[in-house]
């Protein structure tokens, strides 16, 4: 029996050259992973530094209250900021109810049928469709077919379709996290299905749903391509007064400034990016806050 033949092995503490090599390789590999992760984190720092260095000097009240202009020193983001607010508000009003009701159906009502499976798979795959394709859809359906033209409403409808899969997926997760015992207890006292959902499931799932919706909306705020596809304007010197007005939005304004050759417009774009990132970060902070409140209960 060859087992336990210790004569072949050095004593503890006298590691062989090959083992030393293996440890060296392991250390190198770890250093590689740590280094590359640090590099990825550093890129974020670099990006923020670049934006801040370019944009901060241009950031003042005038920048927020002026309309765009072909003179860089007079240009501002007023119309873009209001356009973005319009788009976000309308998108929230449309996608929140539709998304949540769809999630309720899929989690609480849907029979385990073929159609349900098709819907689920379809939602998962829609989430990966490039945003520009939603733009094409919006262009064909809302702008041309429904005749909404280049309006805020057409933009909001397009954005709603874009973020619906995200909202449905996160709302479903929040609803699924509600313990089954809550439902059973409510059914046991004779509540109808909708009463159970409204009185017990939805309130319990609300923080999770809202977090998901806010994160989805912050994605909508940053999206540019679909709005360009439906023909949102890059130069708008007024604030939209209603859902049928033409509009521009922050990312479109930024796109417009970046695509100009002059340095000062690049710096204006950086200032616009700061405004956009502040809006996004405050929405993310709100989402974190709601999630925190939800878990504390």
């Amino acid at each position: 029996m060859a087992a336990n033949d210790l004569t072949k092995r050095p004593a503890l503490g006298q590691r062989s050259a090959s083992l030393r090599r293996r440890h060296l390789l392991a250390a190198l590999f770890k250093a590689c992973c740590v280094g590359l992760t640090a590099a990825a984190v550093a890129v974020l720092g670099l990006l923020i530094y670049q934006v801040a260095a370019d944009g901060l000097p241009w950031l003042d009240m005038q920048f927020l209250t002026n309309f765009p202009s072909r003179f860089a020193e007079k240009a501002g983001v007023k119309s873009a900021l209001f356009g973005t607010l319009w788009i976000v508000t309308l998108t929230a009003l449309i996608s929140l109810p539709v998304g949540v009701l769809a999630a309720i159906y899929l989690e609480d009502y849907a029979p385990p049928s073929r159609l349900t499976r098709v819907i689920e798979i379809n939602i998962a795959n829609l989430a990966g469709v490039p945003s520009i394709v939603y733009g094409i859809l919006g262009l064909a359906i809302f702008v041309r077919f429904m005749g909404l033209e280049r309006s805020v409403l057409a933009g909001a409808l397009t954005m709603s379709l874009l973020i619906l899969p995200v909202i449905i997926i996160s709302a479903k997760e929040a609803i699924r996290a509600v313990p089954a015992s809550i439902r059973l207890a409510a059914f046991a006292v004779g509540a109808t299905h909708w009463q159970v959902v409204r009185a017990h499931v939805l309130p319990a799932a609300l923080p999770g749903i809202l977090t998901g919706v806010i994160l989805a909306l912050s994605r909508a705020i940053g999206e540019t391509a679909p709005l360009i596809m439906i023909g949102a304007l890059t130069y708008v010197a007024f604030v939209p007064a209603g859902p049928m007005d033409e509009f521009t939005a922050l990312p479109i304004q930024i796109f417009n400034w970046v695509s100009r050759p002059q340095q000062e417009f690049h710096e204006l774009a950086a200032a616009g990016i700061i405004v956009l990132l502040v809006v996004l970060l405050s929405m993310n902070a709100l989402a974190v806050l709601i999630r925190y409140q939800g878990t504390r209960k």
Partner: peptide, 9 residues
């Protein structure tokens, strides 16, 4: 979460 237009910049 950073918008793609920012990466273009």
């Amino acid at each position: 979460g950073i918008p793609t237009v920012v990466y273009g910049y």
